[in-house]
Design a protein around this nucleic acid. Structure first.
Lengths: 195, 195, 195, 195
DNA sequence: AATGAATGAGCCTTCATTCAT
DNA sequence: TATGAATGAAGGCTCATTCAT
């Protein structure tokens, strides 16, 4: 039965993703989930006790998947530049995706945490970790002559902030593919050696 | 009488700012405003018909004020570098301010607009306008030898995205003064001539 | 000034008639009247203290006018048959009129009186009076050989009930001009001598 | 469970009938129903989403019942005259009943439909159908020598309008049993052969 | 007389959450 | 486990009515 239960839980999560993607976080009610999943009100409470509960679980899975993607590409076959390019391409894809995009829900959720005073250490660490990762990539790139950079950590942080900025724009005023390309080119331009 | 009414309207706006600053946008109810203002339910509806109505009015004022600040400093006494510095300082202040900070409310509001499909042309224009302004500042700086820059518009856009990214971080994971300073220094570093 | 006041009162009544005609009685609020008249809330209360107040006043005027129409035609120049025909024509016109038709409002008002237990003696008398009037007309018609009728009061009452029935139909399911004509012909057919 | 739900729904309908009977349609609020049924606000909304919803359901049942009564008496044992008499007796009973009488509510509801422009085809058809039915009864009566009538459809329509007129009177100025008897006798007098 | 801001009551509707089955 | 009826709190909105000006 626990197997069946796990499947149902996953089914709820998958369905809920669509709801969060459409309505963000704060507008989503347990009723929304119940209706989307076509299960009973009581049935949902067996697995999750609130929309926050559901979103958090969803994010855990999401992060795991992202990490997987990253590590999958960390082999010897790719140069630092390649990996950075893959990473940015991935980000671009996410920026342009409309469906199943949790970003607004995540922001709304993080806002609510921030307002309650509970800093999401998870997210903070995630940011730092990614900065480190990129910074190391840049270092590697400098080593093998792909890049020129005197402050790899600064550059990495800059990339992350720009990506955040783009994400916000994508979810508020909207961005075109060209907007993203221009900006990414601008950042990379600072790294690549021009003679 | 219209004078009195205008004062009351402003009083409501000022009070509502505090509420939005504390609770964001989506969590704010008309009841919240009513209680914060200590007026009757019906009384509030005389002036505003929804929380959106209030926030939008508030933003109009906000923008006006920001514009004023900008234009006030556009004299001959300041160099391009000075003005850019003032601008960034202002941004930094806002990033660090906790009280009466509408940024989360604004984001939540823009999210909701974006989800409804109504792109906020106002905000879009605002972004573009500010990019133009900064870009011109940079051009001026290049002219007078303060800056070195080959793509002033790209640089301006970059500054804006970074500021957006910082704002997001400030409202989710939180940023320290050092975080901001580091980042702003990094950006400016790309402009300032180093020999 | 009392002259001016009377004019304003009449203005309100005339405007309110349109409102009652459109919305009936129960749905009409003081606010509706205020807005239709484009006067202040307080201003309205100087003249009328409730929508019932307004409607009752309106009905008084209405009845007066109807009576006037009736008596105007009661001369020697018309035969009983003529007058009855004029009366029915008037009724028909009212049945078909869409604008400024108070009938629904009146019904709703009478319903509310009836539910409160206060029988509208006015209306009751009006019904009786009209029955008498028609009955006398029929008698006169019998006398001068226009009509044949053994129970003039019964016939008069029958006419009135049928008219009521038509009015109801007109305000619920709707009636066509033919519907009315057919029915009136049917009634009159019972009076007119056929050989 | 659905059985239990059906019972509750019927309980609400039965209770609501009393409320509509007392207050008509427009004055009835969901709160009234909730209190009469002694259930929670939310509980009512499970079964009905508006007072209109409830009244319509109630009318459906009402019509069904009326139809049943009619068809139950359509056997060979009764003559056309008998059936017409039964029908009129039933109408008389309804005209005199004070309790559980939905007529005012129905009128108010039909008014509101009419004002909204949505002609109630149901009611229109009902009227026509009943006219047809009565007309056929009269035809049968003529055939077997009970009645004398040259325009059975006209007579039937006349009966219906008179009944409508009586119903209106009953709900506004009020009618006595004698009023009804007199009028019904008058109508039937036109049909019955007098020698 | 007239205005219109202000109040507060009243109704509507939606949900989170519980609980008997 | 799963269902879905039931509750009650919460917030939205509209008006009748009053009152200072």
């Amino acid at each position: 039965m626990s197997d069946k239960a796990a499947k149902k839980k996953q089914y709820i999560l998958d369905t809920a993703r669509g709801v969060f993607s459409t309505k963000g976080f704060k507008d989503v009610t347990m009723k929304d989930i119940v209706e989307a999943c076509d299960i009973s009100r009581g049935g949902l409470y067996i697995y999750f006790s609130s929309t926050e509960d559901i979103l958090v679980e969803l994010l855990k899975q999401e992060m795991q998947e992202t990490d997987d993607v990253f590590s999958r590409n960390l082999g010897d076959e790719y140069t630092a530049g390649d990996i950075l390019a893959i990473f940015l391409k991935e980000q671009k894809k996410e920026l342009l995706s409309k469906k199943n995009n949790l970003s607004i829900a995540v922001y709304e959720y993080l806002f609510s945490l921030h307002q309650k005073g509970s800093t999401s250490t998870d997210m903070k660490n995630r940011f730092k970790t990614t900065v480190k990762l990129i910074s190391k990539l840049i270092d590697a790139g400098v080593e093998n002559g792909e890049f020129y950079c005197e402050d790899s950590e600064g550059a990495a942080r800059n990339i992350m902030y720009v990506l955040e900025g783009l994400k916000m724009a994508a979810n508020t005023t909207g961005v075109t593919e060209k907007d993203i390309d221009d900006e990414l080119l601008y950042i990379m331009g600072g790294l690549i050696i021009e003679e």
